[in-house]
């Protein structure tokens, strides 16, 4: 015999489920469409901007005569640069992010670093890393990396139980389990989805079409997405960002001061880093 109240709850649950399903369906459709588009944008990645393609053959000849110290890398680097059709938009966003870093992010992170004990900062860093377990787990599975999925699970269980919700990392310093950053952008790369083109997002920074689509997917696996209060979610996200910047103050400055063209240096560093992550 079902009481009236139960019926009420059941229908409410059904309503909520339905609501949530609808909320997720639209982004999923968008992702699918974008995926189909990117798989068709091979033309973009093979396009050599600024008339480089014509020089490819001569370049190979040059280096075959010369020492092949970098092995095939000279040949590879001839096509290494990513297509950048949105250069002016990207450059504007790069300048915006640059100002954002120097005027807001860096001073806030410095102040935060000054008043927050190092132990708490690294505890928080571990906590945020641990909380993103679903993203890494799903993506290792999607990439068929069974051993890593197991390692992630072990690490998550040990650190959540034994490390106080992941603030400490006994899985790493006692058991030596390695975890890797995996995300949907890398998974797509694994499935031979091309980068598409370089994209600089406001606040988020360097990305590519593929990686941006990936981060939309990862968004649904990220626990912060399911925090009900929007203010709290924003606060948690900001804390995560400020906390992680507090460990890397000075790195961006070094890259910038060593570079002849900071925009190109950053673009190339991002692309090189992502290609390495996809391959490992």
């Amino acid at each position: 015999m079902i009481s009236k109240q139960e019926v009420y709850f059941n229908s409410e649950a059904a309503y909520l489920n339905n609501y949530r399903y609808k909320a997720i369906k639209l982004p999923l459709v968008i992702i699918m469409i974008l995926l189909i588009i990117t798989s068709g944008t091979d033309a973009f990645s093979e396009e050599q901007p600024e008339g480089q393609s014509a020089d490819n053959n001569t370049q190979n000849e040059l280096y075959s005569e010369q020492d092949d110290l970098y092995g095939d890398e000279y040949v590879k680097t001839a096509e290494q640069s990513v297509a950048d059709p949105l250069y002016w938009f990207n450059y504007a966003m790069f300048s915006f992010n640059d100002k954002l870093y120097f005027w807001l992010l860096k001073p806030v992170a410095q102040g935060y670093k000054f008043i927050t004990p190092a132990e708490l900062r690294s505890g928080l860093k571990n906590f945020f890393h641990n909380a993103l377990f679903p993203v890494r787990f799903v993506n290792t599975i999607l990439q068929g990396k069974g051993e890593r999925a197991l390692a992630e699970t072990e690490s998550f269980i040990i650190n959540t139980v034994g490390g106080g919700l992941g603030f400490a990392t006994p899985a790493q310093y006692v058991f030596g389990i390695e975890t890797y950053n995996e995300d949907l952008g890398q998974t797509l790369g694994r499935y031979s989805v091309k980068e598409g083109f370089y994209l600089v997002l406001p606040v988020m920074g360097s990305s590519t079409l593929r990686d941006s689509i990936g981060s939309v997917g990862d968004f649904f696996l990220s626990p912060t997405t399911y925090i009900e209060s929007a203010e709290l979610a924003a606060g948690v996200t900001a804390l995560d960002r400020i906390n992680s910047v507090s460990f890397r103050i000075g790195d961006y400055e070094t890259l910038k001061s060593a570079a002849l063209d900071p925009y190109v240096a950053l673009r190339d560093a991002y692309i090189q880093m992502r290609r390495k992550q996809v391959n490992e």
């Binding site: 600024e50 480089q52 110290l69 970098y70 890398e73 680097t77 290494q80 640069s81 570079a259 002849l260 063209d261 190109v264 240096a265 673009r267 190339d268 560093a269 090189q272 880093m273 290609r275 390495k276 992550q277």
Partner: peptide
């Protein structure tokens, strides 16, 4: 040492990309 890769980013390669154009 003729090149250093930090987090997969080759120092020499990064400059080469900047000098490419």
């Amino acid at each position: 040492i003729y090149d250093v890769k930090i987090e997969g980013v080759s120092l020499v390669g990064n400059y080469r990309e900047q000098y490419r154009t």
